[in-house]
Lab assay of single mutants.
Amino acid sequence: HDTTVHINGLRIEVHGASEEILKWIEEAARRGVEAEEIKRWVEEALK
């Protein structure tokens, strides 16, 4: 999927993410993980 995830006011563009990654992002956000940190993880995961 190409999608934009909104976390604590930060937009994260996610290209080619699976449902699993999207669920993981939402879970991390709920746990209060910094949005910048999530963004870094997602970029690494999608390389």
Rank of each mutant, 00 (worst) to 15 (best):
H1R: 11
H1V: 13
H1P: 12
H1E: 12
H1Q: 14
H1Y: 13
D2M: 15
D2G: 15
D2N: 15
D2P: 15
D2L: 15
D2W: 13
D2V: 15
T3S: 10
T3E: 13
T3P: 10
T3F: 14
T4F: 01
T4V: 15
T4C: 11
T4Y: 01
V5C: 12
V5H: 05
V5L: 08
V5M: 06
V5Q: 02
V5W: 00
H6I: 15
H6F: 02
H6P: 06
H6W: 01
I7M: 02
I7V: 09
I7G: 05
I7P: 02
I7H: 03
I7D: 09
I7Q: 03
I7Y: 00
N8Q: 07
N8I: 03
N8T: 03
N8L: 01
G9V: 00
G9E: 08
G9I: 01
G9T: 01
G9H: 06
G9Y: 00
L10A: 10
L10W: 00
L10F: 01
L10N: 10
L10G: 11
L10M: 12
L10D: 12
L10Q: 13
R11I: 15
R11W: 12
R11L: 15
R11K: 15
R11M: 15
R11N: 15
R11H: 15
R11C: 15
I12V: 08
I12W: 05
I12E: 02
I12H: 01
I12M: 02
I12G: 01
E13G: 07
E13L: 06
E13T: 11
E13Q: 10
E13P: 09
V14A: 05
V14T: 08
V14P: 01
V14Q: 02
V14H: 02
V14I: 14
V14S: 02
H15I: 13
H15L: 14
H15E: 13
H15R: 13
H15M: 11
H15S: 13
H15T: 14
H15Q: 13
H15P: 10
G16H: 07
G16E: 08
G16Q: 06
G16T: 05
G16V: 05
G16Y: 06
G16K: 04
A17Y: 04
A17P: 04
A17C: 04
A17K: 03
A17R: 04
A17W: 06
S18L: 06
S18R: 05
E19Q: 11
E19K: 12
E19C: 07
E19I: 13
E19R: 08
E19L: 14
E19A: 12
E20A: 12
E20W: 07
E20F: 07
E20R: 06
E20Q: 10
E20Y: 08
E20L: 10
E20S: 09
E20I: 08
I21L: 14
I21H: 03
I21C: 08
I21R: 00
L22T: 02
L22H: 04
L22D: 02
L22A: 02
L22V: 06
L22C: 05
K23W: 06
K23S: 10
K23Y: 07
K23T: 08
K23R: 14
K23E: 12
K23H: 14
W24K: 07
W24C: 09
W24I: 05
W24F: 10
W24G: 04
I25C: 02
I25G: 01
I25T: 01
I25V: 09
I25L: 09
I25W: 01
I25S: 00
I25E: 00
E26C: 04
E26V: 08
E26Y: 08
E26T: 06
E26N: 03
E26K: 07
E27A: 10
E27N: 10
E27L: 06
E27V: 06
E27G: 04
E27Y: 02
E27S: 07
A28N: 03
A28V: 05
A28S: 06
A28P: 00
A29T: 10
A29C: 09
A29E: 08
A29W: 11
A29N: 10
A29V: 15
A29R: 09
A29M: 14
A29Y: 11
R30H: 11
R30L: 14
R30M: 14
R30W: 05
R30A: 14
R30V: 13
R30P: 04
R30Q: 13
R31M: 13
R31T: 11
R31D: 11
R31G: 09
R31S: 12
R31Y: 05
R31C: 09
R31P: 01
G32Q: 05
G32P: 01
G32K: 03
G32H: 04
G32L: 05
G32M: 06
G32C: 04
G32Y: 05
V33L: 12
V33F: 08
V33R: 02
V33W: 12
V33P: 01
V33S: 03
V33M: 12
V33H: 04
E34P: 14
E34A: 13
E34V: 12
E34Q: 14
E34T: 15
E34H: 12
A35Y: 12
A35V: 13
A35N: 06
A35W: 14
A35E: 07
A35L: 14
E36Q: 11
E36P: 07
E36K: 08
E36T: 12
E36G: 10
E36S: 11
E36Y: 03
E36N: 10
E37H: 08
E37W: 08
E37P: 01
E37I: 14
E37D: 12
E37F: 11
E37S: 09
I38D: 00
I38A: 01
I38W: 01
I38K: 00
K39F: 10
K39H: 07
K39S: 06
K39Q: 13
K39M: 10
K39P: 02
R40P: 00
R40I: 08
R40T: 06
R40H: 10
R40D: 05
R40N: 09
W41P: 00
W41K: 09
W41L: 10
W41M: 11
W41I: 12
W41C: 10
W41S: 05
W41E: 03
V42E: 00
V42N: 00
V42W: 04
E43R: 01
E43Y: 02
E43W: 01
E43A: 03
E43D: 13
E43K: 03
E43C: 05
E44N: 14
E44D: 10
A45I: 13
A45V: 11
A45F: 12
A45M: 14
A45N: 09
A45D: 02
A45E: 09
A45H: 11
L46Y: 05
L46S: 04
L46H: 03
L46W: 06
L46F: 07
L46Q: 06
L46M: 11
L46A: 05
K47N: 13
K47W: 02
K47E: 10
K47G: 11
K47Y: 03
K47T: 11
K47V: 11
